[in-house]
Computed example of a mutant assay.
Amino acid sequence: MRKILAAGLAIGALVLGLGVVRALSADAAVVPPYHPSRLRDIGDSRQVVVVTGNGRTSSYATLRTYQKNSNGSWSQKFAGMPARNGYAGWEWASRRVQNTGTTPMGTFRITTAFGLKANPGTRVKYIHADSDDYWVGDNRDPKTYNLFQSKASGTRTWRKGESERLAAYPTQYEYAAVINFNRPLGSTISWDTAHGQYVTSQPKNVKLGSAIFLHINGAGSTAGCVSLRRADLIAVLKWLDPAMTPRIVMAPLADIGRA
């Protein structure tokens, strides 16, 4: 009887153990909603930055980085990085309104970076900004809206008071990547010699907002950008490779699959 009981207990333990292993295996196989394989608009990107917010009204987020392998699978490049977003939380890119403190939800290219210091080693196009450089947010001037301006010339058509003087943010803009939210295509931007400014032949929606960047942390939340610790931002910049068509996908965790 004891032998039968012992055998029964052993079989039960084995079955229970197999059940635990299977449960653990099933849990390991669950793909999180922010994994690139579950994102719908990343197109031909082989580098994807994913920012998941804690909630629609939260200014706290996590940034993750993924790179596509030669066999089509995805690998996470760095451990998740703590991030901050807009002080008013999140809004879908098509419904966002300028100066509301929200971070746009959606998928965007990353093609340009800039900074008040020399290129830290990124391979994307890098602009070394100086004390008289601005990012235009003047919604009365759609041809210069959401463009970098290398000098605030006296003949410009945009207003300084409605634009960001980059040197006014020496910590945040030491280095930054431009998130192509509400941005014109690079091929449409040209230099207007008469007014000493860059202009676009395809003006964007001046109500949605401008100057959405991935930059270094300031004192807290942002006005709509996403910010990281300095070392984390530099690591991401060095990793970005234009040949891999990097994109950034941003939304609260509950919405990331629709971004």
Rank of each mutant, 00 (worst) to 15 (best):
G154T: 06
A167F: 04
L166M: 12
G137W: 00
G161A: 11
P142G: 05
T171N: 08
A152H: 12
Q172T: 11
R159M: 06
K143G: 00
Q172S: 12
R159A: 14
D130Q: 11
A152R: 11
Y145L: 04
F148T: 03
T171A: 12
R165Q: 15
V136T: 10
D141P: 01
A129M: 10
D133E: 08
Q149K: 07
S163N: 08
R165H: 10
R165A: 03
S131Y: 14
A129I: 09
Y169V: 00
D141A: 09
S150M: 13
V136H: 02
D141N: 14
A129Y: 12
S153K: 11
P142Q: 11
D133Q: 15
A167L: 02
S163A: 13
D132M: 07
Y134G: 01
R159F: 01
S153M: 04
P142Y: 09
N146G: 05
S163P: 01
G161D: 15
D130I: 05
A129R: 09
D133F: 03
K160M: 06
R159V: 01
R156H: 03
A167G: 08
Y134K: 03
S150D: 14
T155C: 00
T157V: 08
A152C: 10
K151C: 04
D141H: 06
Y169M: 10
A168H: 07
Y169A: 07
D133A: 14
W158P: 00
E164L: 11
K151G: 00
S150Y: 11
D130L: 03
A168F: 06
D138V: 00
D130R: 11
V136M: 04
T155S: 14
P142K: 08
W158K: 01
T144S: 15
K160R: 12
S163G: 07
N146W: 06
Y134W: 15
P142V: 04
Y169K: 07
K143M: 12
R140W: 09
E162A: 11
D132I: 06
W135Q: 01
L166K: 04
W135D: 03
G137T: 01
R140C: 03
K160E: 13
Y145M: 06
E162N: 10
Y169R: 06
K143V: 12
Y169S: 13
G154L: 12
G137H: 01
F148Q: 07
L166Q: 05
A129H: 08
Y134V: 00
G154V: 09
D132Q: 15
T171V: 14
Y134L: 05
K143E: 15
A168G: 10
N139T: 04
F148R: 10
A129L: 11
E164R: 05
K143T: 09
K160D: 07
P170F: 08
R140Y: 12
